[in-house]
């Protein structure tokens, strides 16, 4: 009684493909082992679809600078708008450092470019900062027609 190994031919795929002298096991069964790749493809497809959906749902506004935003639960989806960042080293409007005494003038310039009725200002500030630093920004926003002000927060649970 011959063993399975004795009845099978172990041959390399490259040797079989040779055009000059193909080495095929004559009269012996080929031992072929295959992997079931269907489930692997399924898992990969699900992962890709999940990551694609997660990426597309992300906001246009990104967090920059060394700011630790506060967290909140009952939030709205953040939409595009003029981003104002309050940092230790100054006020940044669309990533440009603005001196405090020129904030009103700069906001007026931005307001002149945006002709929509409800201009949007997104404020990013560190959670430890005091309201005294933010008050001039709110005043300037109200004076220049930015009636919709959004405080950027991190949605709790993310």
């Amino acid at each position: 009684m011959k063993t399975v190994l004795a009845n099978t031919s172990m041959k390399s795929a490259l040797a079989q493909q040779s055009a000059l002298k193909p080495k095929a096991g004559l009269g012996k069964m080929a031992l072929v082992s295959t992997l079931i790749l269907t489930s692997l493809v399924d898992v990969f497809s699900i992962l890709v679809i999940y990551l694609l959906v997660n990426t597309s749902a992300s906001q246009e506004v990104t967090l920059q600078g060394e700011i630790e935003l506060p967290t909140a639960v009952n939030t709205s989806v953040i939409e595009a708008g003029l981003v104002l960042r309050l940092q230790q080293d100054g006020i940044f409007l669309n990533d440009q450092l603005i001196p405090a005494n020129e904030l009103l003038k700069t906001l007026e310039e931005y307001a002149a470019q945006d002709t929509s009725e409800l201009r949007t200002l997104i404020i990013q500030a560190d959670r430890r900062s005091q309201f005294a630093e933010m008050s001039p920004v709110l005043l300037s926003a109200a004076r220049t027609g930015f009636h919709r002000v959004r405080f950027a927060v991190i949605k709790a649970g993310s």
Binding site: L63, A72, I78, F151
Partner: peptide, 8 residues
């Protein structure tokens, strides 16, 4: 990290 907003 998901950014959100609180509107006023």
């Amino acid at each position: 990290i998901h950014l959100a907003s609180l509107d006023i």
